[in-house]
């Protein structure tokens, strides 16, 4: 057991956390940017699932992982447009649309699997391609830092770059301010001349792209196949991180980090003889405790006033 605990303080564990944390951060960014602009995107899980499936499919039929990635982006944008169209133009409840898209993704991805491969399990018999891992020259040779920073999948670096860009976009540009305004009060935003629908459309499209990339990471890096229900509630964890952090991107990212560590511990403990079904619930228990703590804190704040 002490071996196990000491293994949590090694560079390879940090690298593991980064590996399992990437899809979670994609999911969090997806949930964050959409709800910042006032359209809560509950469909993160579903978009991730479709992203994962279509990444495999497009890379298999084109023979190139990069074309697969383009396909993933297209799928993310299309699903985001569906969400945007029905919530903004047709005045449907975004939560309802999100639930519907999630259910659709869960079921329809299995059907597509069946049609494409003849089995409902995995795409193991599709010749899909995997995005490369990136070894950063020089840094990879530095003992500890090299293990942590270098040698991750391509999309991990994309994720980190996008997170930085997103933070700059939200906090340092007029557009970021517009997004926040739309999320806080669309009428107020409208009255000062912000084109609410356009801002929201862009935010939702970004959200769709983040979620789809999170899915692609799972099936084109982390694993090299798509398997039935492979996102395994990662999208929901992103939504929970957004719920904890609210409009504050730093807190959203830190919360995601905590969930990623929990997930990392799970993948370590999965190798032991402990019951795996119980171990798997650890990240969700963390999320639950975090959410409860947050709402108790806010309740106290309200009462103190």
């Amino acid at each position: 057991m002490s071996d196990m605990i000491s293994s949590f303080f090694t560079p390879s564990f940090v690298a593991l956390v980064i590996r399992v944390g990437t899809p979670l951060l994609f999911a969090s960014m997806s949930a964050y940017v959409a709800s910042l602009a006032g359209i809560p995107n509950i469909a993160v899980e579903g978009i991730m699932l479709f992203g994962a499936l279509f990444g495999v499919y497009f890379s298999a039929i084109s023979g190139s992982a990069w074309i697969g990635l383009l396909g993933v982006l297209a799928v993310g944008v299309v699903l985001a447009l569906v969400l945007a169209f029905f919530t903004m133009k047709m005045k449907a409840d975004p939560i309802m649309i999100g639930i519907a898209l999630n259910l659709f993704a869960t079921d329809f991805s299995v059907w597509l699997l069946l049609v494409w491969t003849g089995s409902k399990g995995t795409t193991a018999n599709l010749p899909s391609k995997v995005l490369p891992t990136v070894n950063i020259p020089f840094i990879e040779n530095i003992p500890i830092i090299g293990t942590i920073i270098s040698g991750h999948y391509f999309l991990t670096y994309v994720c980190i770059v996008m997170a930085i860009l997103l933070a700059i976009l939200v906090y340092k540009t007029p557009f970021g301010l517009h997004m926040q305004a739309c999320g806080l009060d669309e009428h107020a935003a409208d009255s000062v001349g912000i084109k609410v629908n356009r801002v929201r459309l862009i935010a939702v499209i970004m959200s769709g792209i983040f979620a789809a990339l999170g899915g692609a990471y799972l099936s084109m890096g982390y694993l090299s196949i798509f398997s039935n229900n492979m996102t395994a509630s990662r999208g929901w964890i992103g939504i929970a991180a957004q719920a904890v952090g609210g409009g504050n991107f730093l807190i959203v990212t830190l919360t995601t980090g905590v969930f990623a560590i929990a997930q990392g511990i799970v993948s370590k403990l999965a190798l032991t003889s402990l019951p795996s079904d119980l171990i798997n619930t650890i990240p969700y228990v963390c999320v639950l405790i975090g959410l409860i703590g947050l709402s108790v804190k806010e309740y106290r704040k309200r009462r103190a006033r």
Binding site: I95, S233, A240, A243, N280, Y284, V287, L291
Partner: peptide, 29 residues
């Protein structure tokens, strides 16, 4: 949690789904 603290019942219920599944499946096995 909803009645007392006005917690976000949707996210909590979603997390509970995953937890209940883990516990339930473990109990069955």
């Amino acid at each position: 949690l909803k009645a007392k603290f006005q917690a976000n019942e949707m996210v909590i219920s979603l997390m509970m789904n995953s937890i209940l599944f883990g516990i339930g499946f473990w109990m069955i096995k």
